[in-house]
Nucleic acid binder design. Structure first.
Lengths: 171, 171
DNA sequence: CGGATTCATTTTAAGCTTAAAACAATTGGC
DNA sequence: GCCAATTGTTTTAAGCTTAAAATGAATCCG
């Protein structure tokens, strides 16, 4: 067809060829495999050692980082999870005695959630084990490799965010 | 305290200190963020553009790669998903006219699943868009960076697998 | 003051996910 | 041929997840 414009320079050629993106696809699949591999194993260990689900662990981790408690909306924002989801999740942890709900006195719409002493203790035990597991999973990477990976993932994160948020042409 | 044993060499110090593994934890969190970011966006686009869920897309992708069809067990193995899960998933795609079940004639326990012509058409359209999205998400990475990332993730995959399968002491 | 709007949470409906139990068909050993 | 073990699938129970509708409370503004 119009091969005339093809030979400009290497970059342009790459950009204009309707090339297949199998390499990116493989990269994505590998990234997903790694994440799933690690996540599923953590899930399974949390379950067998502590009889806790990953979402509950995540929720407790958020509250641990915020000793003064958080509202449901703050939690759903930080956990990237829907508000309705949280209502049920919190409910179960309250039943288990690890969380406490406190309806705000200044604004009766908001519910503050805090770890109980029991919840704090339970979480400490889990977090310590959890950190060790992660160290094991990443154990074969040298410090330099970890740094490289950290940097590349940082770049990917920025790239993906741009691709997701960006394409609002004309603003 | 007992600083006496501290000065041996850098490696020993690192190895013996009951050091915290916050760096690995941050790395894991970043990896998870990237995977979740991309996966959620794919999920959302598949839903809004094609009214299809990610699990259904994955299932169709597996069948597309195996034009002669697969059994439920083969599918559950490749998708890393439970057998029971698949039964329901397949059921819905059959209702949608994209899949066909065929009870094997040689072994009446096994069910073979194949894409219908409609399913094949639907999948082709989705797969093409999907590939473009991935290319966009990874767009800011140079070819060299993509290769590095591929290699490092390969190493991580091996490391994690070893940590997961390995620690059966004494065999 | 009072109606409209906004905001935080809960409820609902639909779907994904798993582990474990149940079922059904086949195969192996006698 | 028959019984036991194995294998492939389905069912069940429990939990996670979301989007959308519903509720209830606070705030805005005329």
């Amino acid at each position: 067809m119009d091969d005339a414009r093809l030979i400009v320079d290497a970059e342009t050629v790459v950009a204009e060829r309707p090339r297949d993106h199998k390499a990116e696809l493989r990269l994505w699949l590998r990234l997903l495999t790694c994440a799933t591999l690690v996540e599923d194993e953590i899930r399974s260990r949390l379950r067998s050692e502590f009889d806790v689900t990953l979402p509950r662990f995540d929720l407790m981790a958020q509250l641990h980082k915020a000793p003064d408690g958080l509202t449901l909306s703050q939690l759903s924002g930080r956990m990237m999870v829907s508000n309705g989801n949280l209502t049920a999740l919190v409910e179960r942890l309250v039943e288990a005695g690890q969380l406490e709900r406190r309806v705000s006195e200044t604004d009766r719409r908001v519910v503050n959630v805090v770890l109980t002493a029991q919840g704090e203790r339970d979480f400490a035990a889990m977090a310590s084990r959890h950190e060790g597991w992660i160290a094991d999973f990443f154990g074969e990477l040298s410090d330099a490799e970890s740094e490289d990976l950290m940097r590349l993932l940082g770049k990917l994160k920025a790239s993906a965010r741009a691709a997701i948020t960006g394409p609002r042409e004309g603003r």
